[in-house]
């Protein structure tokens, strides 16, 4: 198992305690990027910075200094296209992915625009309901478009990691897959996901408990929670696309089949992608 990466707030005392560990720092203040880089560079393995902000992307003060680190920018909107375009030249040099909320209709189009302008981007799922039809259109654009464009997450993650039988948890894209990332707050309370952290549903407490976390009963139980889907009779239990969705929309799935249609199409897209780009696909035609 690879090392767990800790997702934490920008809190100096906490970061000091996380020396030599891989961390993702969460912040909602773009002005903190420079201080963060200054603080963490020497003693921590900075995996990425996750910025969550209501400021539209067009008003974010992107900076040359940001070139040094992977950044995941979560914002609700793109904002003015004209203002955004001025930032494209710099953005193309950064190691940045811009995530827009699924809650704004205009974002589905904006993500196509970003991708076609070769800016890596993604959609993040805000409050339900999700417009699955628009999501499906966006996914089709992301996977089937024949032009060279930037990847759109989480579709790219799913299609490029899908192996047919195994589960693929696209939560990794959002630093939220407990097999790879765990979340910790200023009080050193540790949770499996960001939602669990907000809901005070902790797995452990104290930085010292991190090393033994993966062998703890609570953690093992948590990561095997998915088995519950097949003990109970839920809509998700019978969904062929479960292995790429893993019941993330279980409440919605009981009401309508929007998510099922979407994830089945995504699975087809993953098959298509695999055939197009994998070695196996080539072997069909080449001896």
């Amino acid at each position: 198992m690879s090392e767990l990466i800790l997702v934490c707030p920008y809190h100096k005392p906490l970061i000091d305690k996380l020396r030599q560990r891989a961390i993702v720092i969460r912040t909602n203040d773009c002005n903190l990027i420079r201080p963060i880089l200054h603080t963490v560079n020497k003693s921590n393995k900075l995996h990425a910075i996750k910025i969550e902000t209501d400021t539209p992307a067009s008003k974010i003060p992107f900076d040359d200094d940001w070139k040094r680190i992977p950044i995941a920018l979560y914002t609700s909107r793109l904002g003015s296209f004209k203002a955004f375009v001025h930032k494209l030249a710099l953005l193309r040099q950064l190691n940045i992915k811009i995530f827009l909320s699924s809650g704004e209709e205009e974002n589905y189009l904006n993500l196509c625009i970003l991708s076609s302008l070769r800016i890596a981007c993604g959609v993040y799922f805000s409050e339900p309901p999700v417009n699955w039809e628009r999501m499906n259109d966006l996914m089709h654009y992301a996977v089937y478009s024949r032009t060279i464009h930037a990847p759109i997450e989480p579709f790219y993650y799913v299609v490029s990691n899908f192996e047919g039988e195994k589960q693929v948890d696209y939560a990794s894209v959002y630093f939220d897959n407990p097999l790879r990332y765990i979340h910790i707050n200023e009080k050193e309370q540790i949770a499996a996901t960001s939602k669990d952290l907000e809901a005070c549903s902790y797995l452990a407490e104290g930085v010292s408990s991190i090393d033994s976390l993966e062998t703890s009963t609570q953690y093992r139980k948590y990561i095997n929670n998915w088995q519950d889907f097949f003990i109970e009779r839920r809509a998700c239990s019978f969904c062929p696309a479960w292995r790429i969705c893993m019941g993330k929309f279980r409440e919605e799935a009981e009401q309508n089949e929007g998510c099922r249609v979407f994830f089945r199409d995504l699975m087809d897209a993953a098959d298509y992608y695999r055939l197009q780009f994998s070695q196996d696909g080539k072997k069909v035609w080449q001896s």
Partner: peptide
């Protein structure tokens, strides 16, 4: 991009489609 568009003008979606087609 936020305003409602008249129906008889080229949409953003279609512009992207055309641009992709030309690029290919």
């Amino acid at each position: 991009m936020e305003e409602a568009e008249p129906e008889d003008v080229l949409s953003w979606e279609n512009l992207i489609y055309i641009a992709d087609l030309l690029e290919v």
